[in-house]
């Protein structure tokens, strides 16, 4: 069983003056345990709409959405989910610690565990010093960190995060990436949306690209990386001096044997790949 299971998900919004916006045009997507899934797409592609559907915040126009096998209109589907909303806002009159207590209570955690896990996650997100100040006084990045902390609090199996790195400084980004990698190591399922291909490259097992409400591609990141090799950079040395050249994949073996015949020593062979960003741009523009 896939822990995140989206089938035929369609969503249209009816705005003012009865204008219909088809935000999602039939999404099928499954994510399993121990998998980190990156959800890429341009602005307005439907990432947040998909995530809100996953959290039962909006009702699908068509299709089914399940978490841990439970349909998302049942609150029980969120029992083991840590959710970080897009541009999160938390009761600003509470302090971070109070907010975590509230969240822990909502998940039915015992106070002792809330205390332990709360301290752990606050320290991890570097909010320990600010823990008893009201959230009202937090900076944007601090609120974002708190968002990550509250998603980690009850040690859920599924993490659903809408742009978890937005608003964070480089340190914070690195930290969140590190956390995601750790979660994968613990066999958790992480589903996050982002605009930044490098982040996907760095932490994801799989990536999905959504454009205009439709999934254009879902692929393993390592395969994309492998398929994306367009050629090789070759460095060779001969008495005449050093030389670098690029060959296509097809011509690599030819070139290698030729160089050997010429008595040159190959000092470096490096794959030249189209990076994920290029890949992403191709997909988006190709539509």
């Amino acid at each position: 069983m896939k822990v995140i299971d989206i089938q035929g998900l369609k969503k249209s919004f009816t705005g003012k003056r009865m204008q219909r916006v088809e935000a999602l045009k039939g999404i099928d997507l499954q994510v399993g345990r121990g998998e980190v899934f990156g959800f890429l797409g341009p602005n307005g592609a439907g990432k947040s709409t998909t995530i809100k559907s996953l959290m039962g915040l909006i009702r699908p126009t068509a299709g089914t959405v399940r978490l841990n096998g439970i349909d998302v209109h049942d609150p029980a589907s969120r029992r083991s989910v840590g959710y970080l909303p897009e541009n999160p806002a938390f009761y600003e009159y509470l302090s971070a610690q109070e907010y975590l207590t509230f969240v822990g209570r909502a998940f039915g955690m015992v106070p002792q565990r809330v205390k332990e896990r709360g301290e752990q996650s606050l320290r991890r997100l570097d909010l320990w010093e600010a823990r008893s100040r009201p959230i009202r006084g937090y900076s944007k990045g601090m609120v974002q960190r708190l968002g990550v902390a509250q998603a980690l609090l009850h040690d859920p199996d599924i993490y659903i995060m809408d742009e978890p790195m937005s608003g964070l400084d480089p340190l914070g980004r690195a930290l969140v990436k590190e956390i995601i990698r750790e979660l994968r190591g613990e066999g958790k399922c992480v589903f996050f949306s982002t605009h930044i291909t490098a982040d996907v490259e760095a932490v994801c097992d799989r990536v999905g690209v959504i454009v205009n409400g439709a999934l254009r591609m879902v692929e393993r990141v390592d395969r994309i990386m492998a398929e994306g090799i367009t050629g090789y950079l070759l460095r060779s040395r001969s008495p005449a001096g050093e030389r670098e050249q690029i060959v296509t994949v097809d011509h690599l073996s030819d070139l290698l044997s030729r160089l050997k015949e010429e008595g040159q020593t190959v000092t470096l062979v490096e794959p030249v790949r189209k990076n994920l960003e290029q890949f992403f741009l191709d997909i988006v523009k190709g539509g």
């Binding site: 959290m55 609150p75 589907s77 969120r78 989910v81 909303p85 897009e86 999160p88």
Partner: peptide, 14 residues
């Protein structure tokens, strides 16, 4: 209005 609903209703509360 203050977007608290996203964080609160994302909890397993009906």
């Amino acid at each position: 209005e203050k977007r608290y609903t996203f964080s609160v209703l994302g909890l397993p509360l009906s």
